[in-house]
Design a protein around this nucleic acid. Sequence first.
DNA 1: GCCTCCCCTGGAAACGATTCCATGTTGTTT
DNA 2: AAACAACATGGAATCGTTTCCAGGGGAGGC
Lengths: 357, 357
Amino acid sequence: MTQPRSATIKDVAAAAGVGIATVSRVFSGTGSVSAATRERVLAAARELDYRPSALGRGLKLRRRGGIGLIVPDVTDPFCAELVAGVLACARTLGEHVIVDAAHGDPAREAEILDRLVEQRVDGVIAVPAGREADWRAAARVCSSVVFADRVLPGLPEIPAVLADDAGGVRSLVEYLVGLGHRTIAFLGAAPPGVPREEPGTPLGVRERAFRDTLAQLRVPVEEDLVVAARPAGDAAYAAAAGLLQRRADVTAVLAAGHLLGEAAVLVARELDLRVPADVSIAMVDDVAWAELCDPPLTAVARPARDIGYRACELLLRDRARRGRGGPVLLPTELVVRGSCGAIRTARAPGRGTPRHP
Amino acid sequence: MTQPRSATIKDVAAAAGVGIATVSRVFSGTGSVSAATRERVLAAARELDYRPSALGRGLKLRRRGGIGLIVPDVTDPFCAELVAGVLACARTLGEHVIVDAAHGDPAREAEILDRLVEQRVDGVIAVPAGREADWRAAARVCSSVVFADRVLPGLPEIPAVLADDAGGVRSLVEYLVGLGHRTIAFLGAAPPGVPREEPGTPLGVRERAFRDTLAQLRVPVEEDLVVAARPAGDAAYAAAAGLLQRRADVTAVLAAGHLLGEAAVLVARELDLRVPADVSIAMVDDVAWAELCDPPLTAVARPARDIGYRACELLLRDRARRGRGGPVLLPTELVVRGSCGAIRTARAPGRGTPRHP
DNA sequence: GCCTCCCCTGGAAACGATTCCATGTTGTTT
DNA sequence: AAACAACATGGAATCGTTTCCAGGGGAGGC
């Protein structure tokens, strides 16, 4: 209400009695300005509440700082950590971040991407949902793209930062087999967010690691125990319930994601299964509630924050190093808590009956 | 690599054999263009991978769409939901969102705000951390500001969207008293993120509601049971442990936030207290793990997503209605689960001894 | 005393889009 | 047939900033 329009560089120049070039030099730090003049300019700017406009600057410099970040869902704990990592890194580099959620919808993702290109961000970090064509086009137009947590199979030239999911699942399977488990179920047999049946989609890295590790340990893989499930509330619950009711002899469940783990915990409770006495449960993704469960859940911790941080670094700092040597793999860590036990006693009969029939 | 610089409106105009004004009209939708010309322009644009630059447009229109969102921490489930709400609303209005986390640091908040002003966003939504002066200055310079979830006491003219925390705490206290509890502890006696001792800071709305409701129900408030605690991991845990060890006669704990609730649950488990037999626990904020706890936690659900959505609406749509009639209050809901029980038996002796001494 | 060099400084031309205004080109009405 | 309205189009100014270029002035070296 004080000024109808905010002050421009011209106003400051007039107020300070100097040329606009001098004001620009004071604020952009380039060139040399005498101390007296600088002080006069700063005083005038303060007086007028002047803030340089990123619009004018961006237009002239043909780039307008800032990066775009596309995740499936900001409320997902893993994604939230990833976002936090990107924000932390962007902050150190003085960049801002435009965040949006695609909710696994390729059309929405393309839309967001369009908008980011229009905004002329310096680069885009994405947990991609699909549609390689969109990303191929984006990579042509947009300055640069880095994938995080997932890749698109047809785009090996786009740098990526991933968690070592295979290693995580392997150590978890080894741990379970070491405890004596032989009848281990895998809940979530599909790459996250992508139905297994989709043509051209590779089997999920986690499922492959599950199968490979069991094979290596000479434990037969029962197809009946490898359950496809989308990582969404209802679908996950249904899959977990189906599994545990169908196969009363399962001694351990490996959930491929935290939503699937949540479903497993809830179903086990509903079926009155004691954890870990009746069934051991472990999952990929060490989210906050894993520690609050009773018993606390054993999980593979994936470095979500680091993934975000590294992706941002890769995008903005290590431009030279980008694309060399395939995706960056960040290590996972097996966090052993109380939800997995050694096989001791035979399973109690009568299990599988819902607590509230 | 195809083009060194992305195509501009001039390139498109040249390629289509028309003037730049015509191209602009085609893309901005204003004015009239013959169908044939429009088609030629669109074809040329497609050929050149042309995307209008928001920089040029923003400069001319003296506004550059987009809104800023400042939250304490994107990994906090409540904040994440709030962000999701803002994103959802912004999407319907075709705006993008610059998100950043202030981590409760007023200096950092001011820095972010500076950057947003520099970016000339259309408006800012914030969960403010402090320093009214900064916000007063921002409100003068920046187009518009809306507070979410919290307000700054000295700035009643800035519109705000809040949860009805007082109502939520009241219904929770009434519920606990109704179950027979008389020795109820309040964990987190300070406005979220602001130390109680800070001069000029009002007592937290939740604490006041706690006291008022108890008084109204003629239950005396013991100062010893109103425990100040910052909602951070260690501090919360220490406060909860101190409380439950000091006062073995507490029958119910009301945690003022989800981090405090988490602490209460962990401490209760550590001290071998059965929930709800030995102690009832309830908290403000219904986060995902509340349902996964054993027993599931009774909580006051605050509409985080709606708060974000409404705040965004208020910022962008209801400009006219802004500031009228004080802050918007959104209702909370008491979600009763299994963590609060009626008082039946005397407390078991010997409690208060850590499980692992 | 003069020349050169360097430091400050201001003018003006970009940057990419919108938009007013003027100009042509139709189609319609009297 | 003439006049006028409506539409289609291009030119040019404009937005706020950076930056090149040129010019002025003081200091130092010969």
